[in-house]
Design a protein around this nucleic acid. Structure first.
Lengths: 230, 230
DNA sequence: CAATTATGTTACAGCAATGTTACAACCCGG
DNA sequence: CCGGGTTGTAACATTGCTGTAACATAATTG
């Protein structure tokens, strides 16, 4: 999907540099050299992201962002600020206008592109990032991290995916084949028995007593089920 | 259904920005600028979700969450934390306060709204497969689990399949051959008398008095029938 | 009431499902 | 190209399920 970015920047050197780099990365860029005209255009064409310089000849990027946040159709569109000085950055933070990120000049075009992608990626995946908790266990899908009583647990990629899949669907039993289908993408060359081995490995890491598991319980004849203990 | 969210945040700019965005998405928002008064109000009106800033003028959001988790009426209500720094996030996870998610400042209103929705959606996701109930007995086909007066009953795979088959068709009698056909796939090598044995085993596990069964009753000359007692 | 038939009950041998361990192939970063 | 970690499988161990037979008991019949 083609993403459109509104870049509001009066310095033409910077503007064309940024524009070039963003377009090279597959974004459509529309450049404004001042506050004027941004809001009406945005309300019409609904960009995917704003990059706002703070100091502009005909106004203030912060005021513009306030207008954006005040417009019902634009309130949710992410904003990245460009600031020349640290003090300005403090103002951005202080105002808590829902800035999604900020970059201080001088900046590298690559860094800015990376941040643009990060912000858009983050907004694409919000539902997947909510914490999953059960008993002493907390899974942070955003960080791809598992905590047990405050201690980080080291899991391999497959172990993590299997645990997350089960923990997101607590109380439901899944057959080995279902798990292979969901957690492994290629089910053809993988034995259902591999699931047993991975369940064992996870139990070793998260269960107080791996012989009497309370998180991933065996459902004889059916498969495995994740349970929130107690 | 109108969902009520308690927002505890001392920065009025942030609070009103969040309030505006949540209300725009159909939530009712009640704003508190500090810890004081939150708990009594919550115990009265039972909000659907808390959003807690961690640093507050008159206390600590973490302490407040501890109180929420300690109150019987509020223990299950989800909490999303607002944190200024990543280190604070680790504290949230480390303390095992049952956080459902966290958002670090600066955040975009859209992201926060998305996370609120994700948390609420996750909570009212019921088992996809409907429960089968009869008397003190509840069968959860999704979990492949049988509960008797709230206690989980341990059944073997065949015992479970037979009980589920009968319980889904209460009041109807089935011959041993019919049951073999339905519950066992291979009827050729199995004696009809095996059904008797399995009925006995199930009775031992679910009947108060296995000699006077009230769930699986014998229909002399015909087979067995499941009944909802009382 | 005895004979007959249907169902209940128990114990057990065989075996299928799962647990467990070790290992070879593989991948990936240094 | 080397070393550490990951991955999937095989092989063995173990658990407890499974179905049957044999006997016990209850219901039905004449």
């Amino acid at each position: 999907m083609l993403r459109t970015i509104y870049l509001v920047e009066d310095d033409l050197d910077i503007a064309s540099l940024v524009q070039f780099n963003l377009e090279k990365n597959g974004f459509e860029v529309r450049v404004f050299s001042g506050v004027a005209g941004v809001l009406p255009a945005a309300e019409k064409s609904q960009p995917d992201l704003f990059i706002l310089d703070i100091m502009l000849p005909d106004g203030d990027g912060l005021d513009l962002s306030r207008d954006i946040r005040g417009s019902p159709g634009l309130v949710a569109i992410p904003i990245i600020f460009l600031t020349a000085k640290a003090e300005e950055m403090d103002r951005v933070l202080g105002l808590e206008l829902g800035a999604d990120d900020y970059v201080t000049k001088p900046f590298s075009p690559r860094e800015l592109v990376a941040r643009v992608k990060a912000v858009l990626r983050r907004l694409d995946q919000p539902a997947l990032e909510a914490l999953v908790s059960a008993g002493d266990l907390t899974i942070d899908p955003g960080a791809v991290k598992v905590m047990l009583r405050g201690q980080e647990i080291d899991l391999s990629a497959t172990e993590y995916r299997l645990l997350e899949y089960l923990a997101r669907r607590p109380g439901r039993a899944f057959s080995r084949d279902q798990l292979l289908q969901a957690v492994w993408q290629e089910t053809r060359f993988v034995t259902p028995r591999s699931v047993d081995v991975y369940v064992r490995r996870i139990r070793e890491k998260i269960e107080a007593d791996p012989e009497n598991p309370c998180y991933i319980v065996t459902v004889r004849g059916a498969g495995y089920r994740f349970e929130a203990p107690q």
